[in-house]
Design a protein around this nucleic acid. Sequence first.
DNA 1: TGTACATCAGTGAACGCGCGTTCACTGATGTAC
DNA 2: TGTACATCAGTGAACGCGCGTTCACTGATGTAC
Lengths: 205, 205
Amino acid sequence: MSIAEVTDSRRYHHGDLRRALLEAAMVIIERDGPNALTLRAVAREAGVSPAAPYHHFKDKSELLYAVAKEGFHRLKAAMGSVVVPISTHAMGVAYVGFAHANPALYRVMYDCARSREMIPDSEAEEEGGIKLLRESLIEASCGTISDIDLELAVIAAWCAAHGLAEISTFPQFQPLKDALGGEQAFLRAVFEHLGYTHGLGQTNA
Amino acid sequence: MSIAEVTDSRRYHHGDLRRALLEAAMVIIERDGPNALTLRAVAREAGVSPAAPYHHFKDKSELLYAVAKEGFHRLKAAMGSVVVPISTHAMGVAYVGFAHANPALYRVMYDCARSREMIPDSEAEEEGGIKLLRESLIEASCGTISDIDLELAVIAAWCAAHGLAEISTFPQFQPLKDALGGEQAFLRAVFEHLGYTHGLGQTNA
DNA sequence: TGTACATCAGTGAACGCGCGTTCACTGATGTAC
DNA sequence: TGTACATCAGTGAACGCGCGTTCACTGATGTAC
C-alpha cells in the first residue's frame, strides 16, 4: 500500500510525495512495463498533477535514477536478510528471488547502471550487494583467498546470479523444472552446475 | 555499408527496402540506444518517407520482432563460426564477443524474447545458438551425458555467458582486467572460475 | 494566544514536439497483346 | 518491338495523442512578534 493511500490523499500538501512517487513508479514499471514509466504516468498514479513531481525531481532522468537506486537498496536488503549461516548459494537464491519478484524493476536497475555513471549515492547502493557477496566469499575461504581470486570469484558469482535471474524465467525451461520437482530444485541444480554447491565459487581445478 | 548506399538510393523504387530498414534499425539501436528506435527514425535513417515502412512491416512491433530475429540469427552465426575444435569455452567467448560488439541490439533481443512469445520463426533463430551449444556439450561428454544433466549444462552455460556478456562491461572491473592482462585474459579467467576450462560444464562434484 | 507574512508544495492550463498511423496520390515496373 | 494497363512501392501531408516541461497561480504550513 502506498503512502498516498495510507495518509489522507485529499490533503493539498501530500506529506511525503517524493516517496509516494517512487512507489508509484515501481507499480507502473511492474504493471505496465519500463516503457510506460513517464513522469505524467507517475504523477497520475500518485494522484497528483503532472507538474507536482518537479518539486522533488529535477527532471525525468533524476526520477529514473532514484528508482534504480531504490531498487539496488532493496536488492541489497534482500541479499542481507538471508538466514545464517550465510552462504554464497543462499545469497544467490535471494538475488534470483528478488529479480523474479521484480523483473521489470530489475531491468530498469541494470539499464540504468549500464547506460551511465551512477551518481555516487546510487553506486554505493549498487555496490552494497556486491560487498555482502564478497564478505561471504572471504568467510567461506577462511580468509585465505588471494585478492585477485576473490575478485574473480565475486564476478563469477555475480554473472551466474544475473544470468540465472534473467534466463531462468524463459518458458522453454518449464519441462525441466517440472522434471526436477519445481522452481527451487531447478535453481539449486543450476547453481550446483555452476559450482556453488558449497557456498564458494570453485577455484581453478 | 547498407544496401541503400550500395544501390542507387535516389531511385523511386528502392530495391530491398525491407533489408535496408533492418540495417537502419541496427544502426539506430547501437548509435542512439533502444529508446531511439522509432519507425520514423528508421525511415529517416534509410532515407525514405515515414509511411514507406508500412509496405514491409505491419506496424512498429513487427519491425521490432524482425530486428530481434535478425539479431539472434547473427548471434547464432557468430557462435557457429568458432574455429575447430569446437568447445563450450570458445562458444562462450564468441557469445560474449557478440554481445559486447552489439550491446544495445543484445538488449533488444532479450527484451523481445522475454516480453512475449516470439513468433515461431524467431524462436527458431533464438534456439539456433542453444542448439549449437547443446551439440558441443554432447560431443564433449562423448554422448554419455543424461538428458537432464545435458539440459542443466546447457542452461548453466547459457546463464554464465549471458551474465558475463552483460556484467563484464561494467567499468568497475577495469582494474582487475588490467591486473590480469586484458579483456581476453579476464574473460578466460572468469570462465575458468565458472568451470568452463575444458569446454564442458562441470558435473556435480 | 492571535495575527501577519514568508515559504513551501501543490494546481491546472498551456507550449512545442515527435510519435504511430492513415490517406489519397504518383512514379516505376512488368506483362499481355 | 511498341503500347496499354494493372500492380507495386514509394511520397508527403495530415490526424490525434501523450509526452516533458514551464508558468503564473494558490492553498496550507510554520514562524516572528
